[in-house]
Design a protein around this nucleic acid. Structure first.
Lengths: 192, 192
DNA sequence: GTCTATAGATAGATAGAC
DNA sequence: GTCTATCTATCTATAGAC
C-alpha cells in the first residue's frame, strides 16, 4: 500500500499546489520564489530544499498532465482508423482539460513553459503526437485552422473564471460537442 | 497630409515594434527593458527617454488594437438586431486578428497585460462590450462555452507560427466560417 | 536624443547554523 | 527540515554629462 519509491513528503506537494495557483494568476515569469514561499508561510530556502531550481517546480507542476496525455495518446494511436484516432485524442484531451483545468490552461499558453517543455524531449514529443492525432494525416487548410482554433480554445475554456459555475459533466459535453462540430464540419457548408 | 498632432518621432515606433516582437516571444514579464534596448542597439536610458515606465510601453503596444476595437464595437452596437450585432462584432474581431496578429494573440493572453488593462477603464470597458456582443443577450450555457472557446481560439490561431503560411484572405474566411459554425449551431445536433 | 553611472529593490540560488 | 544570512546578477528607474 505504501509508496516504496520517491517518498515525496507533503512538502513537495504543497509547493506544487501553491506554484500552480500563482502561475495561473501571474504566469511563470511573473511568479517569484519569494511569492511561492510567502504563500506557504515559509522562506525561499525552504522551497529550495524541495526543488533545486525554479524550472524543476514548473516541471513538477506539468508532470501529472503529461502523464495523463501519454496514456490517452497511446490509446488513440492504437485506434484502427484516423477518424477514430482523432475522436479518441479529442475525448482524452477534453477529459484532461476538465480534470486538470488549471494546469492545462494556465501553463500551456505561457512562453516560459513553452521554453522549458521544448527542452524536455519526453514532453515535447507528446505535444507533437497529439497535434498529429487531432489534425489527422495530411490535413487541408480548413482542418489545420480548425485544429489550431479548437486546441487553444478548449484549453482556454477550461480555466475561464466566467465558466467556473458550469458543472464539470456539462462542460465536458459542451466541449466534446464543439470538437465534433469543428472537426466534422462540411467543407461546403457556410463558408463565404 | 502631415500629422499635425502627436509627432511621435521614429523613436517611439521603433521601441513599440521591438517590444511587441519580444513580448510575443517571451511574454511581458519575461521581457526586460534591457532586452528591448539590446534589440534596438541602444541603452536602457534611451528607451526611458521615450517611455517613462515599462507599463507605458505595454499600453502603447496595445493602443492600435483597442482603437480598432472601439470603432467596430460602436458599429456593432448600432446594428438593428442582436444577431446582426454579433455577426458584425465577430467580423470586426476577425479582421482585427488578421490585421494585427501579434498584438491580439500575444498580449491578450498575458497575465501581466490583463493586470494593466484592468487598470485602464477605457480598455477594460471595450473588452466587456465585445464579450456582450459576441455572446448575445442572456446566453445559454452552450453559447457561453462556444463564445469562450471561439474568442480564445481565434486569437490564438492568428499568431500560430504553424499557420503563418496561410494567406491572410484565406485565413480570414476560415476564421469567419468557424465563427458562424459555432455561433449558429443547432442546439440539438450532435451533442451526446 | 543618447550616453555613463548608479541607485534601490528584487531576482534565483547557496552555505551553514540549528 | 526549516531557518538566517548572504552572494551575484538583474531588474526598473533616475540623474546628469555630452
Amino acid at each position: 500500500m505504501a509508496r516504496p519509491l520517491a517518498p515525496r513528503g507533503h512538502g513537495r506537494e504543497r509547493v506544487v499546489d501553491a506554484a500552480l495557483e500563482l502561475f495561473a494568476q501571474h504566469g511563470v515569469s511573473g511568479t517569484s520564489l519569494q511569492m511561492i514561499a510567502d504563500h506557504l508561510g515559509v522562506t525561499k530556502a525552504a522551497v529550495y530544499y524541495q526543488f533545486k531550481a525554479k524550472e524543476d517546480i514548473v516541471l513538477a507542476v506539468l508532470e501529472p498532465a503529461f502523464r495523463t496525455m501519454r496514456d490517452f495518446i497511446a490509446e488513440a494511436e492504437a485506434a484502427p482508423s484516423p477518424a477514430e484516432s482523432s475522436e479518441r485524442a479529442m475525448a482524452g484531451l477534453v477529459d484532461l482539460i476538465i480534470e486538470q483545468r488549471q494546469v492545462v490552461a494556465a501553463l500551456f499558453r505561457d512562453p516560459e513553459v513553452q521554453r522549458i517543455v521544448d527542452g524536455h524531449e519526453d514532453f515535447e514529443s507528446l505535444v507533437q503526437r497529439l497535434g498529429t492525432l487531432l489534425a489527422g494525416p495530411q490535413p487541408d487548410t480548413r482542418r489545420r485552422v480548425a485544429t489550431s482554433v479548437l486546441g487553444a480554445g478548449l484549453a482556454h475554456a477550461g480555466m475561464q473564471p466566467e465558466l467556473a459555475d458550469i458543472d464539470d459533466a456539462v462542460l465536458r459535453e459542451e466541449l466534446l460537442h464543439l470538437g465534433r462540430l469543428l472537426w466534422t464540419a462540411d467543407p461546403h457548408s457556410s463558408a463565404v
